[in-house]
Write a protein that binds this DNA or RNA. Structure first.
Lengths: 203, 203, 203, 203
DNA sequence: TATGAATGAGATTTCATTCAT
DNA sequence: AATGAATGAAATCTCATTCAT
């Protein structure tokens, strides 16, 4: 039922997963316990429905990232993509935050979160690889980039660190573009070399 | 009691804050409920003791970051600092992760987490400002950098995304250095300009 | 719920407040712990509900005491009033007894008990004053009278000192009437004077 | 140990039996749990030691009540006896009050309290019988008298109903003397007859 | 004698879930 | 479909008592 999903979103936002009582959700939805269990088999089930939504939206980001060139066009593409991220997080952050709390305990949800994570990270890594060929820690690069995006937005919401949407987008755009999509270069007349990459032994 | 603190760390690591039972901790410490409540007034109290430790270690990072120059020396300094971060997270990550789960519900802990966050972010922002003068979203830059570090390490631990310590350090070092400590530059023969900064209205 | 109130009365009667377990009450009411906490927020809460009932009944006695004359009519009026007291105590004694145990620890309940006490004592004192003008220890006279009534009935119930209802009423009637409602008089040909009352210094 | 007994008295006075923690007593006595159990086998045991003291003092009252004549001498004798009662209660009231709370649950203590009660009541009844021959509810008369004395003093202590020692003694003396030790008499020119006594069937 | 850290049985309380209506 | 009173398993917490030192 729609009212229950909406109520769930509100309550999980306000209280987190563990502190949310079925009673709170039911009251917020102005319905009864009985009805709750008519539509969801338990508290977790409602939560998962919300989390799936959020995950689906996030997954869509993986597809929407086109090739990035290390110039102003690339920067613009990143800006657009980052903007999407910020907006999706603004919409689903409450659920994503609650998920962080919950994923510990639930295999399914943990798996799904993990797969979303890997999925987006891989997409990012693939794009980076087109500009700066990566050896085997490609995934790590993608993950680092995604980590920044996710956590920065988390802090914006959860702790109300005052950063406007505009500034958030500016800052993240620059950091993603310069930090991941620009090849190594000379700085102040000297070659700034990446540290020579060692061949990794299998992990 | 030491055994209880150690047991707490283990159990919170394995189960998160909410799913950890006092009983589990007590069993892990091979002691009794009575003893638990002799030393801590409740589960939260033990957890806070651990969280304070972790926060103190993290705070120490704010002080240990010297000036960064945009050359190989700066890169090396960043590498060292990132290494510290990775190692502290390796030691205290279980608690920091559980804190994420808990900070929702506890004013005190939320405040403390927030202050640690702002403290380190500010230190980072100050260093960045020495290289690339920032206008008023300085804190945002610091926060973006810290977000990447924290969340990346979280994913390494929580989801067991297989990234070796060495690769983690390599990846983060490069991303922090290039993404935050290198001034804007020409790429591929064209000037890559930062987007012109608007003067912000007071926030 | 009615069954819980009844069960509470039974259990407090048998075991006193402190020794009564919520479990006992719940079993006596043939219901569950959950139900108990649905209707009462804790053991104290249920107890207070019972105590309020008892207090209300007792308070009603204050109103039902008309003027007493020092003759057979007065004696009859006292007899009727004492009878009421004995019967109310028979109905609510278990709760009143438990209250004695509890009032130590609870400000609210202590206050209420105190006010019932003072209320009835004052009503008694006022009636006595109509027959034997009292100086300022009027309240003390009322309290003495009430003390006798209460404690006598307590002993009848708690220690099962075998005194029939009839004998209890006879004895108390005489003691209340002769002890409080008959003016000083000559005994055996000599004047039996009350000890001269000193003027009290303000207390 | 003396310090423990004194501490027990203080703590039971302040908190009642059930709310008194062994820890409180031990702290008040500036000693340790171990020492407590060296001298007393449990909390109850310490309490009983105090209660026995109080009971012994109270029992002594039974012996100290000489024959009462229904004249000024009798009144003086009653005044002295009442004075003793008030003073003993002042000294031991805290324990007696706590005993009320506890006697519910302890056979031994209940028995002892009961026997003290019956003992004093009987002594009173015997004296009353010398003046106003009583049929079989003699014990009831003694008990009524004792009830008044005990409960009145209880209220003085527990609820701090402000009655000075002097007023307490005045009031109780008159009530005991007139209420129990003066034969039936004419009032206002008419004979005030006691209700005819029925012969009781055995209870 | 004296100590006080450790114990664990047992009490209270919560809340997701069920089911008769 | 909808209700909400009832449930009881499971968690937290207390405190009288013990025992090694």
């Amino acid at each position: 039922m729609q009212r229950l999903l909406a109520a769930g979103r509100t309550v999980f936002e306000a209280q987190g997963f563990h502190n949310a009582r079925v009673d709170d959700i039911v009251k917020a939805a102005k319905t009864s316990h009985g009805t709750f269990y008519l539509y969801f088999s338990n508290k977790e089930d409602l939560f998962k429905a919300l989390a799936l939504d959020a995950a689906a939206e996030m997954e869509s980001l993986a597809a929407s990232l086109g090739p990035i060139t290390p110039d102003d066009d690339g920067r613009e593409a990143i800006r657009e993509w980052v903007t999407q991220f910020v907006d999706i997080y603004e919409a689903h952050g409450s659920v994503i935050r609650a998920q962080t709390e919950w994923e510990f305990n639930d295999r399914d949800l943990g798996k799904r979160a993990h797969s979303t994570l890997v999925h987006i990270s891989s997409a990012l890594a693939a794009r980076i690889h087109e500009v700066r060929p990566l050896d085997d820690h490609g995934l790590a690069e993608g993950l680092a980039c995604l980590s920044m995006l996710e956590r920065f937005n988390y802090f914006r919401q959860a702790h109300q660190v005052e950063v406007s949407r505009e500034d958030a987008i500016d800052t993240l755009t620059r950091a993603v573009f310069e930090g991941f999509f620009v090849p190594d270069r000379r700085v102040a007349g000297r070659r700034v070399a990446a540290r020579p990459r060692r061949v990794r032994k299998a992990g």
